[in-house]
Each structure stands twice: as structure tokens, then as C-alpha cells.
């Protein structure tokens, strides 16, 4: 948290030094601040801030990609006459612990077309999702969620 504040201050210093308080310049300041933290980070911070910021951006881009790929898939099936998919409710064993991580995973699953989170078991070991495409088997659905989203979320949060 402290290092995040430091990052913001670095960006503000950049806008002050260049004397342009515009949105674009603040973004440039943040990028330059990130480079500074990449260099001096290991000396002042043990939480791996720069790595987590990088992973968070990767997670975001991965999510956008998933959103597009599966939206197109659903759109195709909605527009095509007849239904060719197999749907069902699948239990996903959870490796992520903690409320924030599970909420994030469940929300991202709901936001991606083709999957919808329905329920978390009381002991937080399983997430039950409704999937639109389980043509390749239940295990494939589990594998996709675990190797894709859950893996990314764990890398950001740990």
C-alpha cells in the first residue's frame, strides 16, 4: 500500500516537473514511475508490487480477450438456427482462498459469456457454475477455468 502511494507521488512529481496537469501526462508519469519502481523496487519493497501490477494488467487483458472470444461464440449460437450446444451445472474445485479472490473469480466467470456462477459451497471448496458449452466434457470446462482465470487471479493476489 505504501509503495502504491509512492507510485502516485512519483506520477504527481512528474506532472509538477513538466508543468502539465493533464490526464495523458499523469499516465506518462505513472508509466515512468513504474520504471523507477522496477529499478529501485527490490530495495524498498518486499511485497512484489511491480510484479503484481504487471500480473494485474495481464489479468485485465486476458479477461478482455475471453470476453470477446466467448461473446462471439455465444453470438454465433444465438444467430444460428437450432441449438448445437450442451449445457449443465459444473462444480469447480477452488484453489483460491479468501473472500476477495473467490468474489473476483465468480464475478469474472459471470461476466464471460457461456459461464455463470451460481453458488459457492459452505466450506468454500467448490464453485458451482452453469456452463453453456460442455461439448468437450466436464473436465475440459474445469480445466479451462482453473488454468485460465483462477491461475491469473492467484498470481495477482498471492
Amino acid at each position: 500500500m505504501k509503495i502504491f502511494l509512492f507510485h502516485i507521488i512519483l506520477a504527481l512529481v512528474w506532472t509538477a516537473v513538466t508543468a502539465t496537469f493533464s490526464f495523458e501526462n499523469l499516465i506518462i508519469g505513472l508509466i515512468l514511475g513504474y520504471i523507477v519502481l522496477l529499478v529501485v523496487g527490490p530495495a524498498i519493497d518486499q511485497s512484489g508490487y511491480t510484479r503484481r501490477v504487471y500480473k494485474a494488467i495481464t489479468l485485465f487483458l486476458f479477461f478482455i480477450k475471453e470476453l470477446f472470444v466467448s461473446s462471439i461464440r455465444v453470438a454465433k449460437d444465438v444467430m444460428r438456427p437450432g441449438f448445437h450446444m450442451k449445457s449443465g451445472v459444473v462444480a469447480i474445485p477452488l484453489d483460491v482462498t479468501g473472500n476477495l479472490e473467490i468474489t473476483l473469480l465468480a464475478n469474472m466467470i459471470s461476466l464471460t459469456p457461456g459461464t455463470l456462477s451460481l453458488e459457492v459451497s459452505d466450506d468454500r471448496k467448490f464453485l458451482y457454475i452453469h456452463a453453456m458449452y460442455i461439448d468437450e466434457g466436464v473436465d475440459q470446462v474445469r480445466h479451462n477455468i482453473k488454468e485460465g482465470m483462477e491461475q491469473h487471479i492467484m498470481e495477482v493476489m498471492n
Partner: peptide, 24 residues
């Protein structure tokens, strides 16, 4: 979406014929 889906499931909706598995 989650709340509506969960409520729908718990109120016992009938699935369409293409539903092949229900682990919940």
C-alpha cells in the same frame, strides 16, 4: 446475474433437454 441465476435454480426451474450434467 448471479443472484437471478441462483434464485432461478433454487426455485426449481426445469432445464432444457440439452442439459447433460447437474452437479449442484
Amino acid at each position: 446475474a448471479h443472484t437471478i441465476g441462483r434464485a432461478a435454480y433454487q426455485s426449481g426451474i426445469t432445464f432444457w433437454k440439452g442439459t447433460i450434467v447437474d452437479e449442484l
